[in-house]
Each structure stands twice: as structure tokens, then as C-alpha cells.
């Protein structure tokens, strides 16, 4: 699959602060790509650069294999940071301006308003909209022109739980049409629920990148108990070559296995030692603990 966006060695310096340090990522076609990181980690800076509103200090990027141009911009729909509209114009008037800038026919506007649930409020002024409505209008503006790629920076910011669920549903629907979505978020839960690929940023540095499943699969936890005293289990486990970490947690032994081995290897090994395990549970680490681990790895 071709890469929609290819970022090479992107850096951005604000005075003494290095907001982005040598970032290189590739966004595959058809993926929902999550850019995850705490506030101030460089997500918006990254998106601002590839959307042509922030000048990079170093590095290059290519959309669809080409440098950015009016032609590539028309294939991208984007919402960066805040919904940016004229407050004294109505939602519909604002979308007309967006459509003109994108050179999209105005006939798409009613459908887009319908999609984001603002059809009934289209004649109201933007300044009277609630935060959630503003956010949805911005998503609607990004959808005008039927773009191949959607870039969304914190799309659920300021939305109530119902709104968050709606926006997520919208993102899934759009992705189901084969479009690529690049999503920046500081909400792990959001990335975990929605994304296929992810990159974790911290202090402008790339901490991890890849398919969400592979990042999560590398560190499965296995809990075992029964068949022998915990101390004995611990001792045997520590002696096994494919166990990278073993410790006692709440009357269970918690093990971390090497990526190429699985729980049946473990069971076989214990059986060979004459121990039939009473319980063997595999638990995928939650993205949250994963995330904190990635973040902490740097803090040391």
C-alpha cells in the first residue's frame, strides 16, 4: 500500500524550545492513524507543518508522493486545533466560503450539514453555536470536497459524551469508505477505540510507531497460579529463557513473555517440570499502561 503522507526528519524550533525533533513517520493509505501524546508534545505542530501553516525548521514531507500544492490540498480535509469561522456569518454562509476556497460546488453543503447534524441550525450565526456544534461544523467543512484524507486535531475536544460517540461513529463511517484519517489526540481511549496505526510523541520526539495491534501485542501479560506454591512458580518462571520478567502480584505470578513465544510455550514448560498450572490468564496490556510506559521510558 502506498503512503499517503511521508514525513522525514521534521523539526520545529520556537526560540530555545525544540517543539519537534527529527520526526519521521509514514501514514499508510486507508489507515486511521493516531498521533498520540500529552499536551505540548508536538502533535499540533506536526499537523500545522504538513498542512502548510507552520514553517518547519528542518525536514521534508510529501503528500501522495508529491510536495504540498493547491492540488494536494484539495485532496485533504483538515481541522486544526480550533474551529475557524467568521462569527457573524451563519453556519451555511461559512461553509459557502469554505466551498469557494476549496473550489467545491455548493450543492454538497446541505448533505454535509446533514451528516454533521447541523441542518436545522444552518441559518444560525456561528457565534451562537455551542462548542460541540462549532466542532461539528469544522468537521463538516473538512468533509466538503469529499477528501481522500481527513486530518483531525483533537476532534472530540469540548464535546459531551454523546457528541464524542457521534464524532467517533462519523470517523468510523468515513474510514469505512476507504479514506485515510489522521487523528491527533491526547486521549488514549480515543486512539485505542478508533485507530489502526499510531505514533506516540513526547516532547517533540517519536517514542513508538506502528500498527496499534503490534504495539500492544509486544507486551502481553500472563498471570499464573496454582499447581505449586507461588515461590516455586516464581523460581521456575525466572529460569525459563523466554520469560523476560516475573514477579508476584496479588497471589498470582505476573509474567512478561518474549514477543515470539506464547502462553502454550509457558504451559508446556511448567508441565515438563511436573507442574500442572491451576490458572493461566493472558491479558493484553491496556493502551494506557502501555502509553505511560513509553512516556516514562524517556523520563528516566
Amino acid at each position: 500500500m502506498a503512503d499517503i503522507l511521508d514525513i522525514q526528519g521534521l523539526s520545529k524550533r520556537y526560540g530555545a524550545v525544540l517543539a519537534l525533533d527529527q520526526l519521521s513517520i509514514k501514514v499508510p493509505q486507508g489507515s486511521i492513524y493516531g498521533l498520540l501524546g500529552p499536551n505540548g508534545s508536538g502533535k499540533t505542530t506536526t499537523l500545522g507543518i504538513v498542512l502548510d501553516v507552520i514553517n518547519a525548521s528542518a525536514g521534508t514531507y510529501r503528500w501522495f508522493g508529491q510536495p504540498i500544492s493547491k492540488a494536494t490540498k484539495r485532496r485533504i480535509g483538515a481541522l486544526l486545533e480550533t474551529p475557524n469561522f467568521y462569527p457573524y456569518l451563519t453556519g451555511e454562509e461559512n461553509l459557502r466560503i469554505t466551498a469557494d476556497v476549496k473550489r467545491v460546488d455548493h450543492s454538497r453543503i446541505p448533505a454535509v450539514l446533514q451528516t454533521v447534524g447541523l441542518a436545522a441550525r444552518k441559518a444560525n450565526k456561528f457565534k451562537g453555536y455551542s462548542l460541540g456544534m462549532k466542532q461539528r461544523l469544522a468537521i463538516g467543512a473538512a468533509l466538503l470536497g469529499d477528501p481522500e484524507v481527513l486530518v483531525l486535531d483533537e476532534p472530540t475536544n469540548g464535546l459531551d459524551p454523546e457528541g464524542i460517540a457521534e464524532v467517533r461513529g462519523l470517523i468510523m463511517d468515513i474510514a469505512a469508505q476507504g479514506k485515510t484519517i489522521i487523528l491527533a489526540s491526547h486521549l488514549l481511549d480515543e486512539v485505542e477505540k478508533v485507530c489502526t496505526h499510531m505514533a506516540v510523541l513526547r516532547n517533540g520526539k517519536l517514542k513508538a510507531e506502528g500498527p496499534v495491534s503490534s504495539i500492544m501485542a509486544t507486551n502481553d501479560l500472563v498471570f499464573i497460579s496454582g499447581g505449586a506454591p507461588l515461590e516455586a512458580l516464581l523460581q521456575i518462571a525466572r529460569a525459563l529463557p523466554f520469560v523476560t520478567e516475573a514477579r508476584q502480584v496479588n497471589q498470582q505470578i505476573q509474567l512478561t513473555l518474549q514477543p515470539n513465544s506464547d502462553s502454550s510455550d509457558l504451559n508446556r514448560a511448567f508441565f515438563a517440570q511436573g507442574i500442572a498450572l491451576g490458572q493461566l490468564v493472558v491479558r493484553k496490556k491496556s493502551l494506557e499502561s502501555q502509553f505511560l510506559e513509553i512516556i516514562k521510558a524517556d523520563a528516566v
Partner: peptide
């Protein structure tokens, strides 16, 4: 209104 920014994103 940050609309300059939006218009550059949208194709200006």
C-alpha cells in the same frame, strides 16, 4: 478568527 490559517489549509 484564525480564518487566514483555515483558508491556507483549505487551498489558498
Amino acid at each position: 478568527f484564525r480564518t487566514l490559517r483555515q483558508q491556507v489549509i483549505d487551498g489558498f
